[in-house]
């Protein structure tokens, strides 16, 4: 990808799964990468795995004050920001009728409040520094209905609309897009799904398999690069064709 060398990149939720794969890919592209996560142990681990990282920051994206403090740390590490991968997110598998107010609050707090808090801090620095790219983590769950993740799905729809509105207000200096993965084999997915459930997912994906974190990382690097210089305000689906047909496509 063109134009990623020496770019200053922040990846939230970057200590594992898609975030960690994305950190590795940006390092490959020659970028300077800082990973933010609330999981201190996972950050220690990734620091050992990826010694080229420019730093790690412990922070909870759902807490605005903590995010403000984290960005002061980031200023010390990178003195500005060119690319934000706004990736941190959580999900809880539960029926709509069973969602407690606390659970609802928790999911929205990380997936939507967190994306907003981090994006606003990042955009401040990008506007001051002459531009940048913000990539928010959406999901095919923000585009279609899915059982047992009503709060998560609502949060991801919110991220998609937030992306479009941010793109309008921050243009032309800052490009803002959203990545919508379908089923990707991550630790989050493996923890929540039984092998039978994973096989059921594979059977409804035209490419016949789940995606890999590295494949989502490749989409992030493309959208962050100069190759995507005219792309802003949109969401990009990476799902092996799953939502191309919805239920009607099932044989």
């Amino acid at each position: 990808m063109r134009g990623l060398e020496d770019k200053r990149v922040l990846i939230t939720g970057g200590a594992g799964g898609i975030g960690a794969a994305t950190a590795a890919r940006f390092l490959d592209e020659g970028s300077r990468v800082v990973v933010l996560d609330r999981d201190e142990a996972a950050l220690r681990h990734i620091k050992r795995e990826m010694p080229a990282l420019s730093g790690t920051i412990v922070a909870d994206v759902s807490d605005a004050d903590d995010v403000a403090r984290a960005f002061e740390e980031l200023d010390d590490l990178l003195a500005g920001l060119d690319v934000l991968i706004n990736n941190a997110g959580i999900s809880i598998r539960h029926r709509f009728m069973d969602i407690s107010p606390q659970e609802w609050r928790q999911v929205i707090a990380v997936n939507l409040d967190g994306v907003f808090f981090v994006a606003q801090q990042a955009a401040q620095r990008m506007l001051a520094g002459g531009g940048g790219v913000i990539l928010n983590m959406g999901s095919t769950s923000g585009l279609m209905g899915y059982h047992y993740y009503a709060d998560y799905n609502a949060s991801k729809s919110g991220v998609i609309e937030l992306t479009r509105s941010m793109a309008l207000e921050l243009a032309p200096a800052v490009r803002v897009n959203c990545v919508c993965p379908g089923y990707i084999l991550t630790p989050m997915q493996e923890a929540e799904y039984t092998p039978e459930m994973l096989r059921a997912c594979e059977s409804k994906i035209p490419l016949g398999r789940l995606g890999r974190p590295e494949e989502v990382a490749a989409l992030f690097t493309f959208l962050a690069s100069d190759d995507a210089a005219f792309i802003t305000g949109h969401y990009f689906v990476i799902d092996g064709g799953e939502i191309a047909g919805g239920l009607a496509s099932q044989q």
Binding site: R164, S165, A167, L168, A171, R175, I184, P206, L207, G211, R212, E215, V216, A218, L219, T221, F222, A228, F230, I231, T232, G233, H234, F236, V237, I238, D239, G240, G241, E242, I243, A244, G245
Partner: peptide, 20 residues
Amino acid sequence: DASSFVTGTTLVVDGGGLAG
């Protein structure tokens, strides 16, 4: 191969024209 899990989608490249 960068898009090896991408199929059935539309990639909009329009400078944000359809964002709002």
